[in-house]
Design a protein around this nucleic acid. Structure first.
Lengths: 239, 239
DNA sequence: CTTGACCTTGCCCCAAGGTCAAGGTTCGAC
DNA sequence: GTCGAACCTTGACCTTGGGGCAAGGTCAAG
C-alpha cells in the first residue's frame, strides 16, 4: 500500500495534482490508514497513470472523467480523436517555430507572401528605408482593412514594377521626399508622372488609377507619411 | 486606421486578448476616435503579431513584455532558448502520443520494460489471468515502494523463469489457487517446491529467497490475493 | 527526544483569457 | 430617416489545472 507521495513519484505528478483529481472525482479516494493518511493500491496507480497520460495529451479533466469509465469502443474513438488533436498541435508548434525564426528579421510575418516579395523587389531597387517603412505599413493597413482589394492591388503593383520607366519614376518620387517644395525639378517630375499614367491608362482601364504615393492614402495620419515636397507634388499633379 | 476587430482578425487573436495585452502593458493603448473606439496603426499590428507569435510559443506574457523592448542580442538569445523549449515540447508531445497508443492495451505504461517483458513471458507460459493480474499489481507496488529492489528482483525472477522446472512449479502453484485446501496434491507440491529451493539456494545465497507467491507479499491486502489452498500451501511450506 | 520528512485540511492565488451584462456607435438597406 | 445587424465600450465574474502557504498531526532515524 502506497502513500500519496510514493504514488505521486510513481506517476510523475505532484501530490497536489492527485488531491485535485480526487476533488474532481477522477480518482477514487482510497481508504485511510489509522492516522488518516491515504493508502493507495495498484489499481489507483494504474488509473492515475491513465489520467496523467490523458491530461498530458491536453484532455480536459472533465472529459478524462467520462473516458475513464467509457466502453472500449467509445474509448478507442476518443483516443483516435485525441491523437489527431495531438498531431495537430505538434504541427502547429512546428509552424510556430518557423514564425519564431522569422521574428529575427524581415517583414514576412506581417504581410502576405506577395507583398513581402514586392517589398524585397523594392529593397533591391534601392528604395530608401523611409519609403520601405511607408510601403510596409501601408500594405499592412490595406491588407487588414480589405484583404481582397490588397490582393488585387499588389498583383497590379508588381506588374507595374516590371516596367523600368515606372521604377525610375518611383525612385524619383522617393528621392523627391527630401527636396525643397520650391525645387525646380518638381513640376517636371509631376508632368512626367502624369504623362506616364495617361499613356498607360488605357491598358488598365477597369481598375482605378493608383500611383506611387498610394502609401500616403493608407498611412495618412502616420508621422512622416508626407513631406512639403510631396505635398507640392500632389498639388502639381492634381492641378 | 484599424478598429479592434479588424486588428484582431489580422493577427488571428480575439478582441479580448488584445484588450488583455493592453491591460498587461504589452501593447500600447492606441488613440481613440471621436466616439471612444480604439484606432490602431500598422505599428500596433506589427507588435501584436510579435506578441501573438511569442504567446503561441508558450512564452508568459510578462516575459513577452520584457522581450519586446530588449536589445537584439538579448532577443536573439531568448528566441534561441524559446525555440529549444518548443522543440522540447514537440518531443514531449510525441512521447505522449506513444503513451496514448499504449493506453489501448497492455501494461507497458504501468511497469518498467523489464517487468513488462516478464509479464509477456508469463502470459506466453499460459499463466492464468488472475495470476497475471496479481503479478502486475504486485510489481507496480514493488516498483513504487522501492524501484531499486524491484529492479534487482525482476532480473533474478526473469533468470529463474528460464528454468523449465521452476516454470512448471510456478504453473502448478497458479493452478493450485482453486484447489480445495484438503486436496491431496498440496503436500506433494509443497515438498517439491521446498526441495527445489533448497537445491538452488546455494547458487543465489546473497539474495533473500523469493518464491512464486511473492506477489502475495506485495498485494496482501488486495482482494483475491490468496485462497484457502494457497494459505494451506504456505502453512505446509513453512512447517 | 528531537529533527526532518511526510501527511492532513483549508484557503487564497496564478495565467490567459472567456462570458455576460448593459449600454453607445456605425453602417447598409429599405 | 430609421431600423437592425454588427461593432465598440467598460466592468465584473468564471474557468482550468493546479501552486503556495498556513497550521497543524505523524513517523522514522539518530
Amino acid at each position: 500500500m502506497l502513500t500519496i507521495g510514493q504514488l505521486a513519484d510513481y506517476a510523475g505528478v505532484t501530490i497536489k495534482a492527485i488531491r485535485h483529481y480526487h476533488e474532481r472525482g477522477l480518482l477514487a479516494e482510497p481508504d485511510r490508514d489509522s492516522s488518516g493518511y491515504r493508502r493507495y493500491t495498484a489499481e489507483h496507480a494504474i488509473k492515475l497513470v491513465k489520467i496523467r497520460t490523458l491530461a498530458h495529451a491536453g484532455v480536459p479533466l472533465a472529459r478524462i472523467k467520462d473516458l475513464l469509465d467509457a466502453d472500449p469502443d467509445t474509448l478507442a474513438a476518443a483516443i483516435a480523436e485525441i491523437d489527431h488533436n495531438l498531431q495537430d498541435r505538434i504541427a502547429r508548434l512546428r509552424r510556430t517555430r518557423d514564425q519564431l525564426a522569422q521574428l529575427r528579421g524581415g517583414d514576412r510575418l506581417f504581410v502576405s507572401a506577395e507583398v513581402a516579395d514586392y517589398l524585397d523587389d523594392l529593397r533591391e531597387l534601392g528604395v530608401s528605408e523611409r519609403q520601405m517603412h511607408l510601403e510596409r505599413d501601408g500594405w499592412i493597413l490595406m491588407q487588414t482593412a480589405s484583404p481582397e482589394d490588397a490582393c488585387l492591388w499588389i498583383t497590379e503593383k508588381r506588374e507595374l514594377m516590371t516596367n523600368p520607366e515606372f521604377c525610375a519614376l518611383y525612385l524619383e518620387h522617393d528621392a523627391a521626399y527630401d527636396w525643397s517644395p520650391s525645387d525646380p525639378r518638381l513640376p517636371a517630375l509631376a508632368d512626367r508622372t502624369r504623362n506616364w499614367f495617361t499613356k498607360h491608362h488605357s491598358r488598365s482601364e477597369t481598375h482605378p488609377v493608383r500611383n506611387p504615393t498610394i502609401a500616403r492614402l493608407a498611412t495618412q495620419s502616420q508621422p512622416g507619411a508626407s513631406s512639403p515636397a510631396w505635398d507640392r507634388l500632389a498639388q502639381l499633379m492634381k492641378g
